[in-house]
């Protein structure tokens, strides 16, 4: 059971809640969502509590996170994009903290479930679509007609653009989900090799050194992936928001 690499993704009910036949239980996933939000909020609020002109270390980390996301958003969506800053910053912090929480042994990785990443990416896509239509009306559809394309090619290009637009929430959510899932499975599999080889005695213990080294290296890699995927998710969000603000390419 301990060696089952899928076990870590199981959802367990902690407080069963059922409304109209719909299972809305507070699960381990919900617990870690709460933990993620609590940790990120508490950190950001307490770190900036001093409002120091010269930042403390913690405040400096909070400021770095802010400026990192602000820089991303400003460079891809311009100053106008800054109106979406609270959303983009929330997404970045939520995904980053959830990913990093997943790195603790026995912790549940919220972002390893496709429904979570899909909901997050739907928030992005719906924001883009609704804001795009609210601001530009039908001109938002220019998004599907790239400027400078000969009129004859528009019937071919426009459907491709529509498909690419529709596939955005899928690619956005699957990328994050698959990275977290695959990383955690790989880590668990290699760690499992260490245990099962170690149980075989002398030669097995010697042979277990290789997967142990792999596990250590993969742990490092997974920390990188945890950050990188939060970054990628945020960068793509910024680029999609840019489409809502400036629909004509």
């Amino acid at each position: 059971m301990a060696n089952d690499p899928i076990h870590q993704f199981h959802i367990q009910r902690l407080f069963p809640i059922e409304v109209g036949g719909l299972d809305l239980s507070f699960t381990n996933s919900s617990l870690f969502m709460v933990a993620t939000v609590a940790a990120a909020s508490v950190f950001l609020i307490f770190a900036t509590g001093g409002r120091g002109l010269v930042p403390t270390r913690m405040q400096s980390i909070a400021e770095m996170a802010y400026e990192f996301v602000a820089g991303m958003l400003r460079s891809s969506a311009g100053t106008e994009g800054m109106r979406f800053f609270p959303l983009v910053f929330s997404l970045f912090m939520f995904v980053l903290v959830a990913n990093l929480f997943g790195m603790f042994p026995y912790f549940f990785t919220v972002t390893s479930h496709i429904i979570v990443t899909f909901v997050l990416s739907m928030i992005v896509i719906l924001t883009v679509t609704i804001y795009g239509f609210m601001r530009h009306g039908a001109r938002f559809l220019n998004l599907f007609v790239p400027a400078g394309v000969p009129a004859a090619l528009i019937p071919i290009v426009a459907p491709i653009e529509v498909i690419s637009f529709l596939s955005r929430p899928v690619s956005l959510s699957v990328r994050l989900f698959a990275n977290m899932l695959a990383g955690h499975i790989t880590l668990k599999v290699f760690a499992g090799f260490v245990v099962s080889l170690g149980a075989m005695g002398g030669i097995g213990v010697a042979g277990a050194i290789l997967p142990l080294g792999m596990t250590v290296a993969l742990t490092g890699l997974e920390f990188l992936v945890a950050f990188l995927q939060a970054y990628v998710f945020t960068v793509l969000t910024c680029m999609y928001l840019n489409d809502a603000i400036h629909p004509s390419h």
């Binding site: 899928i6 993704f9 199981h10 959802i11 809640i17 719909l22 299972d23 809305l24 239980s25 507070f26 699960t27 996933s29 919900s30 969502m33 709460v34 993620t36 939000v37 929330s90 939520f94 919220v110 390893s112 479930h113 496709i114 429904i115 979570v116 909901v119 997050l120 928030i123 989900f177 899932l181």
Partner: peptide, 19 residues
């Protein structure tokens, strides 16, 4: 588990609340 649609409602609800 990630493809277990029975858990979707709960995850969506709690994600909506927490996020």
């Amino acid at each position: 588990p990630p493809f277990d649609s029975a858990t979707f409602a709960s995850q969506i609800l709690w994600l909506a609340i927490t996020f």
